[in-house]
Design a protein around this nucleic acid. Structure first.
Lengths: 148, 148
DNA sequence: GCTAAAGTCTGCCACCATTGGAGGGTCAAG
DNA sequence: CTTGACCCTCCAATGGTGGCAGACTTTAGC
């Protein structure tokens, strides 16, 4: 059973050290838009509300937001982050599970980097041979329109 | 003034060396879905139709589709491809214009590669120190949930 | 206490490139 | 004439994020 949601007056909440969404955004570095989005997709649950229906965030919530932000910075997908959050909140997780998620993401990164590096290398060859002046002949277009 | 669209019977069109969308897809390597999409966004214009409203493709159309596919393979955005197609079809373009588009894309690629490489390096450090066994302590989660 | 500004709420649209499906029409072979 | 393979159009979804509109609340100044 999750902890139940609470209802506060706005001023009361701030006195108790809770944050409205603007302050939570500043404190976590996550945009207001994305904070609401993360709640909508279930990454952040049981967010309290004031009587006026304003969202109210605890330190734990802000901590979770910073976790998500850091994970996004490292390129994890929302799907991975969902898993990582569950592992983070489960204090008896095996570290192997975490490492597995990270390893999967690293494989993805390596593939993407290799793909882009391959594009880049090809483009470097093509542009190396392109005059880049007023003349119309151009090995880049020759390649794109080529018979391959 | 673009060349006007023509209307054929399906069998007639095939006899004249024209292709229906399925054959154009096979010949170009572009999916049927994407062929229609490229037409919808204006990359492929003046596509002929049969009486039954089936699309009919000329060799030139298929050549254009292969151009687009090759450009996508090299990671160009649809926006860039629009420009590249116009340059390709303009036989008096300056090669400098083509090179400029390519250079811009290469800069994008370099930035993305650098970003991903940075993520990867960080993850390699973190996973290097993670036991990856049944124990719960994990430097990956420590980093994500850390005070930074 | 009144007003104006700033903050928040929900909901919808846009991006990029691609894929999928529904529901219907058409062509060719048996 | 039926069957199956093809084609048509239209709509929706993906993943993350930003933007705007219209309505409400809170706060600050007077």
């Amino acid at each position: 059973m999750g902890k139940s949601e609470s209802v506060f007056e706005h001023a009361d909440a701030l006195e108790r050290g809770l944050l409205d969404i603007g302050r939570a955004s500043t404190a976590s570095g996550v945009s207001i838009k994305m904070i609401r989005h993360y709640e909508a997709i279930g990454l952040l649950t049981n967010v309290a509300r004031t009587h006026a229906n304003y969202r109210v965030y605890s330190d734990t919530d802000v901590h979770t937001l910073r976790f998500i932000k850091r994970a996004r910075t490292l390129g994890f997908s929302m799907h991975d982050i969902r898993d990582l959050l569950a592992l983070w909140q489960n204090k008896s997780r095996p570290s192997a599970s975490v490492k597995k998620v990270a390893a999967g993401h690293m494989d993805e990164l390596k593939k993407k980097i290799a793909g882009m590096q391959s594009m880049l290398t090809t483009l470097q060859h093509l542009t190396h041979n392109c005059h880049g002046d007023q003349r119309p002949d151009c090995p880049i277009l020759d390649d794109l329109g080529g018979p391959a």
